[in-house]
Simulated scan of single mutants.
Amino acid sequence: MNVLTINIKNAGYPDNKEAIKDMQFSVNKGELVGLIGANGAGKSTTIKTILGLLKDVDGTVSFEGESRYAYVPEHPVFYDSLTLWEHLELAAASFQLQTEEWIERAEKLLVYFRLEKEKHELPSSFSKGMKQKVMLITAFLIQPAVYIIDEPFIGLDPRATKDFLSLLMKERERGAAILMSTHVLDTAERICDRFLLMAGGRLVAEGTLTDIQHTCGLSGASLLDCFDNILERSL
């Protein structure tokens, strides 16, 4: 079942209305799709389009039914005057979560990511990795139908990365659809069901790793080798 469907003829900015072109893809229930591309390929513009942040869009973005989504940005964003716990309260109120339900879930997530002692502190004082954990905790608290995650591994130490991936797999089992942009291709190769490879604002290849290998004519190659091959051909 498609939970997120994108059909975009072009989208962009006032000075470049075709930053991305001919983008058609979907993300299914319980599926993890990797959005892969070099800097400037159009990944961020694609995510902004999905989030409804761009005015110059010719196309449609559809979430199935009343599906809610959570966005984890590459660079954490906080309200300067709110503590970690108050950020979670705000997220819970925004999504009208039941009080007992979200408090229990929040407490477990704080323990899981080892931030329970910092719950009443301001995230602005946290390290980069701790800030990223707060973004992840807020997203997992909501338990949305769709996760849109941009470069989640930046700043996370190995243990936090393992914890994040473990929870992500549980959310897939719950049925959540996940679109994840990342440059960490070895991890993406291991965890993603399908890949969307971008270059020059377009999709240049998509499918499973086997599909991508077939497109490149590189049987058994890694995702990184396939990406390099496709990128060279797209230049």
Rank of each mutant, 00 (worst) to 15 (best):
V72G: 12
G201V: 10
S181G: 15
S125I: 13
L53C: 01
I47H: 00
D193Y: 07
R114K: 01
F63E: 06
R105L: 11
Q132D: 01
F153R: 11
A205P: 12
L203T: 11
E31S: 03
L165C: 12
G217I: 08
S222R: 13
L209C: 06
T210A: 15
A92Y: 10
A205E: 07
S124I: 14
A38P: 03
S81C: 11
A199W: 06
H183S: 13
R114P: 00
K128R: 15
K128A: 06
I148D: 01
L136M: 12
E121H: 02
L88G: 05
R202H: 12
K108N: 15
T210F: 02
F140L: 04
T46M: 04
E171T: 12
P14G: 15
T208V: 11
D211H: 14
I142K: 06
E232D: 15
Y69V: 08
P76A: 00
S234D: 02
D228G: 00
I103M: 14
G34H: 00
T83W: 05
P158Y: 09
I36A: 05
A19G: 13
F195V: 06
L109Y: 03
S219W: 01
I142F: 10
M130V: 07
N10D: 13
G129N: 07
A199H: 15
Q143L: 14
F63R: 01
Q132L: 04
F78S: 06
Q96W: 10
L82R: 03
S124P: 05
E232A: 15
G52Q: 01
V3G: 00
F195M: 10
L197W: 00
N2V: 09
L82D: 09
L156C: 12
G37L: 00
A205T: 11
F78P: 07
E118I: 06
D22Y: 12
G12R: 04
V61N: 02
T138N: 06
R159V: 15
R105Q: 15
G129K: 07
D56E: 11
G207A: 09
T208G: 10
K162M: 14
M135F: 00
G129C: 05
E18R: 07
F227C: 12
E118S: 13
G220C: 10
D22T: 14
I103T: 14
K55H: 03
Y13L: 05
E171Q: 13
L110I: 10
D22N: 15
H183R: 07
R174Q: 08
S26E: 07
E64Q: 08
I47V: 13
L90W: 09
E104P: 08
I142C: 11
S94F: 12
V77A: 11
G42D: 02
A176V: 13
I137L: 02
A106I: 06
L51W: 04
E101L: 07
G220N: 14
L168S: 05
V3Q: 05
Y71T: 11
N28M: 06
P158H: 12
G65K: 02
I50H: 02
W102C: 13
A93P: 05
Q24A: 08
K17A: 11
Q24W: 06
R233I: 09
A93F: 10
D15Y: 03
V33R: 03
G155D: 01
